[in-house]
Computed example of a mutant assay.
Amino acid sequence: MTTVLIIEDDPMVQFIHKSYLNKIDAALIIKTSQTAKEAVNLLNTYKIQLILLDVKLNDSNGLDLLKKIRQQGYPAEVILITAASDTAVVQQSRHLGVLDYLIKPFTFKRFANSIATFKKNQQLFQTTQLQQTKIDHVFHSTPESTNLKVNLTKGLSQITLKLICAKIKEQKKPFTAESLANQLNLSHVTVRKYIAFLEKHHVLTSKTVYLKVGRPYQIYQLNPNSPFTIDQL
């Protein structure tokens, strides 16, 4: 289970972050803190995988807190979410290893893309070794990690596609459209449309399961022979 820590001194902004996270994945465990001191206590108490960090806090500078987080070796990814757009701040945050940098105000789509990147990396780091192509996906440094220009079917959206793809990557065994829809809190009809799109582009393969009693049903899984990865959509 993924636990996210929101470090933000503005209650309204905290609420927006929580709402966005719940919209993306209702299964996330969310902790909140308005001060650096409280954040450190939470980091010492819970196993935090992701931190959403503001630069300007009531009792500390967010970058100073980030330095402490790195020095103490807390194994959490950090997304900086701030109104600060100074080049020096951006450069320093990059040196401190932030996963992403969002400038307020930001769109839900931009926020969701950042969370999708976190989920992608989390999935990759479950293995003990990575091939070059997988490493390229982490660092986004070569053409292999560039998104493919696949035209979406009319009525489909890129943001919903990314959310569904992220959830598909979490599946440990073949799944049905209904089970995926329930996990995402989306309608079965909507999820079936995106699954059909992914199957059309050879990202998913399907198999019909026949029962002694009742109607047959389809199960899906990632296609190991796909010409590109699900992250490239």
Rank of each mutant, 00 (worst) to 15 (best):
F125G: 02
G62T: 03
V78E: 01
P216I: 09
F15N: 06
K120C: 00
L184V: 10
A196D: 15
T32S: 14
D59Q: 07
L52D: 11
N185Q: 14
E77Y: 06
P224K: 05
L124P: 00
P105Y: 03
K134Q: 15
L156D: 12
L99A: 04
G155F: 08
N61A: 02
V90P: 07
I168S: 00
T190M: 13
K149Y: 06
L163K: 11
Q218L: 09
L50M: 09
N113H: 06
K109H: 08
I7S: 06
T208M: 14
F139N: 10
S19C: 07
A83L: 05
R70C: 04
L204K: 11
L28T: 11
V203I: 15
I103P: 13
Q158P: 03
D59E: 14
D231Y: 14
I79V: 15
N58C: 05
R110Y: 04
I195Y: 10
K67C: 11
V138G: 06
P216C: 08
S179P: 02
T3S: 13
R215I: 05
L50C: 10
M12H: 08
L198Q: 11
A181M: 12
K31E: 15
Q72E: 10
K67I: 12
N151D: 09
K18D: 10
D64Y: 02
L65D: 00
D100L: 02
V203R: 04
L63P: 02
T153N: 15
S33E: 04
C165N: 01
S93F: 07
I103Y: 00
L43N: 06
A166M: 02
F139M: 12
T82R: 13
L66W: 07
A36L: 03
Q91V: 01
L184A: 07
T32N: 11
C165G: 01
E38M: 05
A27I: 04
K68D: 08
L204Y: 07
T32M: 07
L204N: 08
K120L: 12
P75D: 08
K31C: 12
P227G: 04
G73L: 12
G73A: 03
F125Q: 05
E144G: 01
N58Q: 14
L5I: 00
Y210E: 08
Q91Y: 00
A181Q: 09
A177C: 12
R94C: 02
L52C: 09
D59C: 10
L53C: 03
K154L: 13
L63M: 06
V98G: 02
N151S: 13
L184P: 11
